[in-house]
Amino acid sequence: MSDYISWLRSHVGPAPIQLVFAAVCVVDEDRVLLQRRGDDGAWGFPGGAVELGESAEEAAVREVGEETGLDVRVTELLGIYTKYWHTYPNGDRAQPITAFFRGTPIGGSLHETDDRAGAPPGAETLEVRYFHLDAPPQPLTNQQHADALADLRAGRSAVHR
C-alpha cells in the first residue's frame, strides 16, 4: 500500500473512498501475465496506486516492474474502469478507478514463481505467472479485473465502464 493511501486511511479509517490505480495487461503471444496478490491470495493484473504527481502510464510501468521484475512498454489504453467497489481483507472499502493498459515486455526478468514461500508477511506479490488468455485462474481478485480480462480477450480498446 502506498504511503498516500496509508496517510489517507489514517484520516478516514475504513470509510469508503475513491482510489486511483493503473495496471498493465502484459501480453506475450497468446499469454497474459497475472499476479497472485498478497492481500487476498487471488490473481489479477499487476498494477497499483497512482502516486501523487505521477501519470497513470508511469504508475502502471513502475508497478509492473516492482511486482513482476519485468520492464514493459505500454502499447495502448484498454480502458478506464470506474463503477466498481472492492472490500479489502481488512474491511476497508474503496471505489477503485483503474486505467488498464495493454503492454509488452521489453526487458527485465520475471520474479521466481516458486509460490514465493519466502515472501515476507504483507508482501504485495506472492507469485507471477503467464496464463493462456483462454485459461486464466478463477476467480480473479474482483469484477473490475474480470471485466478487463474479458475486454482484453475480445480485442476491445478505449473501454469505459
Score class of each variant (00 low, 15 high):
residue 1 M to L: 14
residue 2 S to Y: 06
residue 4 Y to N: 07
residue 5 I to A: 11
residue 7 W to H: 10
residue 8 L to A: 15
residue 10 S to A: 14
residue 11 H to Y: 05
residue 11 H to V: 07
residue 13 G to Y: 05
residue 15 A to L: 04
residue 16 P to F: 12
residue 17 I to T: 10
residue 17 I to H: 06
residue 18 Q to P: 02
residue 18 Q to M: 12
residue 20 V to K: 01
residue 20 V to N: 12
residue 25 C to L: 08
residue 25 C to W: 05
residue 26 V to P: 00
residue 27 V to S: 05
residue 27 V to A: 11
residue 29 E to C: 04
residue 30 D to E: 08
residue 31 R to F: 07
residue 31 R to Q: 11
residue 31 R to H: 14
residue 33 L to P: 00
residue 33 L to Y: 04
residue 38 G to W: 02
residue 39 D to I: 10
residue 40 D to G: 05
residue 41 G to D: 01
residue 42 A to E: 08
residue 43 W to P: 04
residue 44 G to F: 03
residue 45 F to V: 03
residue 45 F to Y: 09
residue 46 P to Y: 01
residue 47 G to V: 01
residue 47 G to S: 10
residue 48 G to S: 04
residue 49 A to F: 03
residue 50 V to M: 01
residue 52 L to F: 10
residue 52 L to Y: 09
residue 53 G to C: 07
residue 53 G to F: 05
residue 55 S to W: 00
residue 56 A to F: 02
residue 57 E to F: 08
residue 58 E to F: 00
residue 59 A to D: 00
residue 61 V to H: 03
residue 61 V to T: 08
residue 62 R to G: 07
residue 62 R to P: 03
residue 64 V to H: 00
residue 66 E to T: 08
residue 68 T to S: 12
residue 68 T to N: 12
residue 69 G to H: 13
residue 70 L to P: 01
residue 72 V to C: 01
residue 75 T to Q: 00
residue 76 E to P: 03
residue 78 L to P: 06
residue 79 G to F: 11
residue 79 G to N: 06
residue 79 G to T: 02
residue 80 I to L: 14
residue 80 I to V: 11
residue 81 Y to E: 07
residue 82 T to Q: 09
residue 82 T to A: 07
residue 83 K to E: 14
residue 85 W to Q: 14
residue 86 H to R: 15
residue 89 P to R: 09
residue 90 N to D: 15
residue 92 D to C: 00
residue 93 R to V: 11
residue 93 R to G: 10
residue 95 Q to Y: 09
residue 96 P to T: 12
residue 96 P to A: 09
residue 97 I to W: 13
residue 98 T to L: 08
residue 100 F to R: 02
residue 104 T to I: 11
residue 105 P to Y: 01
residue 105 P to K: 08
residue 105 P to V: 05
residue 106 I to E: 12
residue 107 G to W: 13
residue 109 S to G: 11
residue 109 S to M: 13
residue 109 S to K: 14
residue 110 L to Q: 05
residue 110 L to F: 12
residue 112 E to W: 05
residue 118 G to V: 13
residue 120 P to F: 15
residue 121 P to H: 15
residue 123 A to M: 00
residue 123 A to G: 03
residue 127 E to I: 00
residue 127 E to K: 10
residue 127 E to H: 13
residue 127 E to V: 02
residue 127 E to P: 00
residue 128 V to S: 04
residue 128 V to G: 01
residue 129 R to S: 13
residue 129 R to C: 07
residue 129 R to P: 01
residue 129 R to A: 08
residue 131 F to M: 13
residue 131 F to Y: 15
residue 133 L to N: 01
residue 139 P to N: 04
residue 141 T to Q: 08
residue 141 T to Y: 00
residue 142 N to V: 05
residue 143 Q to H: 11
residue 144 Q to K: 07
residue 144 Q to G: 02
residue 145 H to L: 06
residue 145 H to T: 06
residue 147 D to P: 01
residue 147 D to Y: 02
residue 149 L to T: 07
residue 149 L to K: 12
residue 151 D to S: 15
residue 152 L to E: 13
residue 153 R to C: 05
residue 153 R to T: 14
residue 154 A to P: 07
residue 155 G to Q: 03
residue 155 G to C: 12
residue 155 G to T: 09
residue 156 R to T: 11
residue 157 S to P: 04
residue 158 A to L: 13
residue 158 A to P: 01
residue 158 A to G: 13
residue 159 V to I: 12
residue 159 V to C: 13
residue 160 H to G: 05
residue 160 H to Q: 11
